[in-house]
Amino acid sequence: MSRKKVSVWSDNRFWQRSATWVTGFASLLLIWLTFDTMGQISMGNQKDIDNHVVKRVPSATVINYKVEYNMNNHRGHEVPVIGGDDGKGNSLFKVKEKFFGRDDYSQKEADALLHLGKLASQAKNCMDCHTLLGNGAYYAPDLTKAWLDPAWGKNGPMQAMTGKSTKEEAMAEFLQHPGKYPTHARMMPNLGITPKEAVGLVAFLKHMATIDTNGFPRGFGKIKEGVVYAKTK
C-alpha cells in the first residue's frame, strides 16, 4: 500500500472522536472525583465526636460543644475547632457549651433541629441576600462563620441590642423580628420566622460554622480592626 500524504488535523472524524473521548473521559473523572469527595463530605455522627474523628462536615450534635475557628499548624490555615483547642488548632471534643440552655441534645434531636434549620434557610430564601459558604447574593453578610462573629458574642453590639444574654437567643430573637433591630439602613425583612424555626436556623448556623472550609474566610474575626463596632466609630 502506497503511503500518501493525509491530513489528520483537518479531519472531521478525528476531532469528533477526540471530542467524544475528552468529554466522556472528563465526565468519568468527575464522577470518580465525586465519589471520593462524597465520602469525605458526608456528615459525621456523635460516634465520630466520641472517637475524636475529624470530619469535614461534623455531626449535628456539635451544637452541644464549644466551637472556635483557629489556626491549625498542620493544615496551614484556620479550621473549626470543636470542644476546645489543644494549642495547635486541633479539636479536643471535650468542652461543652449550652445551646438554648442545654448541652445534651441527642443525635435525633440535633438532626431534627438541623433539618428544620436547613429547610427554613431554603424556605425563606436566605441565599438571595446572604452568602452561605460564600455562595449566594452579596446584599447581606456571609453566614459561613456567622456563629463565630464577634458582633454576636458576649460584648458584641448585636447581642446587646436584642437584650438577650446568650448568642443563640440573641440570634433567634433577631431572626424573628429583624425589623425591630435596625443596624444599618439595609435591614433584614420580616420573613415570618417562627420561634421554632429560629432555633433550627441558629442550629444550622452553628453547624455550618463547624464545616471545614479549607480556611475560608481567611482571618475571620481574628483581625482586631475587623471588629469596628459601628457605634464607636
Partner: peptide, 9 residues
C-alpha cells in the same frame, strides 16, 4: 511561624 498553605497577600 505558622505555615500558611494559601499565602497571605
Amino acid at each position: 511561624e505558622p505555615l500558611y498553605i494559601r499565602p497571605i497577600i
